[in-house]
């Protein structure tokens, strides 16, 4: 049936919105509002809070940065000095007191004036840097002579050298050997034996040996 509404528009009864549409609209609005609300909560709530917290921490950190940098500089300077100190220690450790060594050597050779065990003297001395294998150190080489023709006295001298304080720090010595020299009739005794004396000293070895003993 056709419905004809002859009343002017202003007098017509308003048409009601459909319930379904209303529901859909309300539901949609709710959904959108909820999303917007959650977004607003997160953006203006949680995010703002963490940003504020970060800003505070950042400020705190900025205060600490110069002091931490100061400590870094101290550590760097410490490292620099420590390297210098290490170098100085190394130099001192490897230093040899040749006065002490030669004094001790002279004592051994002199043997308190006892000329029966050995009476030795030397024609030359050479001390120079060298290596024993890979280890750096000093060669100490002498051209020696022993009065008399008894090669046993050369062995006595070598024994005295090896057992003395002088030999501390030495890593090597040659085997005793000798060659009887031409007679010198104007001297008493006229016989003498020539022998080489070769030793190798390693710096720091003496101190290590002393530390071990202690």
């Amino acid at each position: 049936m056709i419905r004809i509404n002859l009343l002017p528009e202003e007098y017509r009864r308003k048409e009601k919105t459909s319930f379904k549409i209303f529901l859909a609209t309300a539901g949609g609005a709710l959904l959108v509002s909820a999303c917007a609300g959650i977004f607003a909560y997160i953006w203006f709530g949680s995010l703002a809070e963490v940003r504020e917290k970060r800003a505070t921490l950042q400020e705190n950190y900025q205060v600490l940065v110069p002091q931490a940098a100061y400590d870094d500089q101290l550590k760097a300077e410490k490292q620099d000095f420590a390297a210098r100190e290490k170098t100085i220690k190394q130099i001192r450790r490897n230093r040899i007191s040749w006065t002490r060594k030669l004094d001790q050597f002279i004592d051994v050779v002199n043997n308190n004036g006892d000329d029966q065990r050995h009476l030795a003297w030397f024609g030359s001395l050479e001390i120079s840097p060298g290596k024993l294998g890979k280890r750096p150190g000093y060669n100490m080489n002498l051209a020696g002579y022993c009065a008399g023709n008894d090669l046993g006295k050369v062995a006595n001298l070598f024994d005295d050298i090896v057992q003395s304080d002088f030999f501390k720090g030495f890593a090597a010595i040659n085997e005793p050997s000798g060659k009887v020299q031409k007679l010198q009739k104007d001297l008493d005794p006229p016989e003498s034996v020539a022998f080489p004396l070769k030793m190798f000293l390693i710096p720091g070895l003496e101190k290590k040996a002393d530390k071990k003993k202690k």
Partner: peptide, 17 residues
Amino acid sequence: KGPSGRRDIFVDPRLPS
């Protein structure tokens, strides 16, 4: 310590015969 009565070990100590 000085010579302290020790002889020079680079000198032949033998006396003339």
